[in-house]
Every structure is written in structure tokens, then in C-alpha cells.
């Protein structure tokens, strides 16, 4: 198991668990980051900060602080 923030560009991984709480968790779920969802890492922004992911056919950018709350395999 890894953090989503550590995955390289171009890789596809599956969501395993969300470590986020409350509103953030709710928001992640609303975006479709449920268990077993495939996520592709599309692009890393300046300073490796914002990273763009393909989440259920939509491009979503997350900061490192958020993407390392998502466990993947």
C-alpha cells in the first residue's frame, strides 16, 4: 500500500482507503474516490504540489496534503 501522492505520472492505481475525515472525506467520496476506484496520475504541477488525476473520467487536481490521505495499491 502506498499514498496516492507518491505515485508517478502515468501510473494507474486502485483506491484502498481514505484517511481523510469529515467534510474532506465527504468531498472525496462525492468525487467518486470510493474503495476500488481506478485513478490515473496525469500530471504534476510546479513544486510537485498540485497533481492532476483522472478520477472517474474527470480531471481533478489535488494538493499533496490531500493526495497523501488516500491509500492506494
Amino acid at each position: 500500500m502506498n499514498y496516492l501522492s507518491d505515485i508517478d505520472v502515468g501510473k494507474v492505481v486502485k483506491v484502498n482507503a481514505l484517511l481523510a475525515k469529515d467534510l474532506l472525506k465527504e468531498r472525496m467520496l462525492a468525487l467518486g474516490l470510493t474503495k476500488g476506484t481506478s485513478v490515473e496520475v496525469i500530471r504534476k504541477g510546479p513544486k510537485n504540489n498540485l497533481t492532476v488525476f483522472d478520477i472517474r473520467g474527470v480531471m481533478i487536481a489535488l494538493r499533496r496534503e490531500e493526495s497523501n490521505l488516500i491509500m492506494v495499491e
Binding site: 472525496m28 492532476v52 481533478i60 489535488l62 496534503e65
Partner: peptide
């Protein structure tokens, strides 16, 4: 500290 943030990049 900055709080959480998700940004959608629409097509």
C-alpha cells in the same frame, strides 16, 4: 495552515 482543496479541470 491551508485547508484541503480539490480543483476540477473541466475539458
Amino acid at each position: 495552515v491551508p485547508s484541503s482543496f480539490t480543483l476540477e479541470l473541466p475539458p
